[in-house]
Computed example of a mutant assay.
Amino acid sequence: MTTCDSTSVGILITDHRGRYLVVERATLPHGTAPAAGHIDDHGRSEDAARAEVEEELGLTVTGLTRITGGWRENRCRWLPGACGTGHEWTVFQAAVSGELVPSARETRNVRWLDADTLLDLADRTVVHAQGQLSGAEFEAAPGIEPVWIRWLVDVTAIHISCDDLLRVEQVTR
């Protein structure tokens, strides 16, 4: 099994109507989220962001702006790396071009979500973090991937209470 390099990128893509491009992860960790992945052998975080958008969505990145990031104690499907369980994240806003061609291996249910629907999915993640929704129920009909709640709060795409944010952060570990 692969050992995690403890570095990740996330790529927020919006359209001219302000909708967010999201996928349901076909692999662990479960949830709905923007494109993301490990930096691995991609070199720089910008290179990884471009590669992940191409791999997951079939789109070409035409512009990248770093919008948030930092260390998150979130699990992944790989063995923990030298830094333990978690990742140093760099989250970008990306401009893209091309035709959306999602990866069947990495993604399911790729779609554009308006801000209200994004918040509804975040609320489902909060309900899961509060213990009112089992892991199996969350996997069957996922909310936002827990690690993404913080990033979406940081960029004011969603708003949740500080208490709920802390609860969600507990389930990322």
Rank of each mutant, 00 (worst) to 15 (best):
Val61His: 03
Ala35Lys: 05
Glu139Gly: 07
Ala129Gln: 04
Ala157Lys: 02
Ala140Phe: 06
Val168Ala: 08
Leu100Trp: 10
Gln93Asn: 12
Gly70Thr: 03
Ala94Phe: 02
Glu137Arg: 03
Arg66Ile: 12
Glu55Trp: 13
Ala36Ile: 02
Ala157Glu: 08
Glu24Leu: 04
Leu113Ala: 07
Val22His: 05
Leu166His: 11
Glu145Phe: 07
Val127Tyr: 06
Glu99Arg: 03
Ala48Asn: 04
Cys4Asp: 09
Pro102Ala: 13
Arg66Leu: 11
Ala122His: 04
Leu21Ala: 06
Met1Thr: 09
Gln170Pro: 00
Val147Ile: 09
Arg105Val: 12
Ser6Ile: 00
Arg124Trp: 14
Gly69Gln: 07
Asp47Ala: 15
Ile158Val: 14
Pro29Val: 14
Val153Pro: 00
Thr65Ala: 02
Arg124Leu: 14
Leu133Ile: 05
Gly86Gln: 10
Arg108Gln: 14
Gly98Tyr: 13
Pro34Tyr: 07
Val91Gln: 00
Ser103Glu: 06
Val147Thr: 14
Ile149Pro: 00
Glu52Val: 05
Val22Leu: 07
Asp5Ala: 06
Gly84Gln: 13
Glu73Gln: 03
Tyr20His: 14
Ile144Pro: 00
Glu99His: 03
Cys83Leu: 15
Pro29Asp: 06
Arg167His: 11
Glu54Cys: 04
Val155Lys: 02
Asp123Leu: 11
Arg77Val: 05
Val127Ala: 05
Asp5Leu: 04
Thr60Arg: 00
Glu137Tyr: 04
Leu28Ser: 13
Cys83Glu: 15
Arg75Asn: 09
Ala141Lys: 09
Gly58Val: 06
Ala51Tyr: 10
Arg50Glu: 15
Val23Met: 13
Arg19Asn: 15
Glu46Leu: 02
Ala95Cys: 03
Ser161Tyr: 11
His128Ala: 08
Asp15Tyr: 14
Ala33Tyr: 10
Asp154Glu: 10
Val126Asn: 01
Thr7Pro: 00
Ala95Asn: 12
Ile67Asn: 00
Thr156Glu: 11
Cys162Ser: 11
Leu21Asn: 06
Trp78Gln: 08
Ala129His: 06
Arg75Gly: 05
Ala33Met: 12
Thr65Glu: 08
Ala94Ile: 01
Asp123Gly: 01
Glu46Lys: 01
Leu12Phe: 14
Ala35Phe: 05
Glu52Lys: 08
Cys76Gln: 01
Thr62Gln: 00
Leu133Asp: 02
Ser161Arg: 08
Gln130Leu: 13
Gly69Lys: 03
Asp120Val: 10
Leu79Arg: 15
